[in-house]
């Protein structure tokens, strides 16, 4: 089994499980590469069947914390179309500098409530903002580029950069994968996804 196949398998199950439980998006689990298969599966699912988990998804209750999103995301991020779809713009991904990446990660994190931890969806109010999509593309593609360098270049130096970038982007990584449409690269595949926070005690009781 090659690495791509391994990743494709994991990615498929992650979309089914993480996509429904955490993202709460019902049958809307798109995948351009596999749209045929997933459409077949979607066709068997009633369109209103996802309402229950949507209501239960913890992220659904997270309020927007900043009305001026575009201002907050002013990091000189290139337009998403220059970075995505993944694989066609490797040079652009390599050109994302640390300052832009750090600015984007920090700005995106600022959209979240202070104690949100790792989340899988940005507040609804933030979703339409084009600056959010641009910064998410920066986060995802910079990490993808880091992985590529680790695999193909100088592992020691690149590993340190990858570790640092992973730490920086950890709170927003999975939400950005959602915004970016789960591109094929290693960032949005379920390699070592962070463990979601525990349910609060009050909720459990």
């Amino acid at each position: 089994m090659n690495a791509l196949a391994f990743r494709a398998g994991l990615r498929a199950s992650a979309k089914v499980a993480l996509g429904l439980v955490v993202i709460g998006c019902g049958g809307v689990v798109g995948d351009a590469a596999d749209s045929g298969a997933e459409s077949l599966a979607d066709a068997s699912v009633p369109r209103d069947a996802g309402k229950a988990e949507t209501a239960l998804a913890p992220e659904a209750a997270i309020p927007a914390t900043d009305a001026g999103l575009s201002d907050a995301l002013a990091c000189n991020a290139p337009p998403p179309s220059s970075l995505l779809p993944e694989g066609s713009n490797l040079d652009a991904a390599a050109a994302i500098d640390t300052a832009t990446f750090d600015c984007c990660a920090a700005s995106l994190e600022a959209l979240l409530p202070a104690d949100a931890g790792t989340i899988f969806q940005f507040p609804d109010a933030a979703a339409p903002d084009p600056a959010l999509a641009a910064c998410c593309a920066v986060v995802v593609m910079r990490l993808d580029h880091d992985y590529t360098v680790v695999e193909n270049g100088d592992p020691d130096a690149a590993e340190a950069t990858l570790q640092q970038d992973q730490t920086t982007a950890a709170p927003v990584r999975w939400a950005c994968c959602n915004v970016a449409g789960h591109p094929e690269g290693p960032t949005c595949t379920p390699w070592g996804p962070p463990v979601p926070p525990d349910m609060p005690r009050g909720e459990v009781a």
Binding site: G26, A37, L40, A41, V45, E53
Partner: peptide, 18 residues
């Protein structure tokens, strides 16, 4: 077959939260 299995798995993840 895979498409059907996706549907079977998805069913569980939909029903379980409720």
């Amino acid at each position: 077959i895979w498409a059907d299995e996706i549907g079977h798995a998805r069913f569980g993840w939909k029903v379980a939260p409720g």
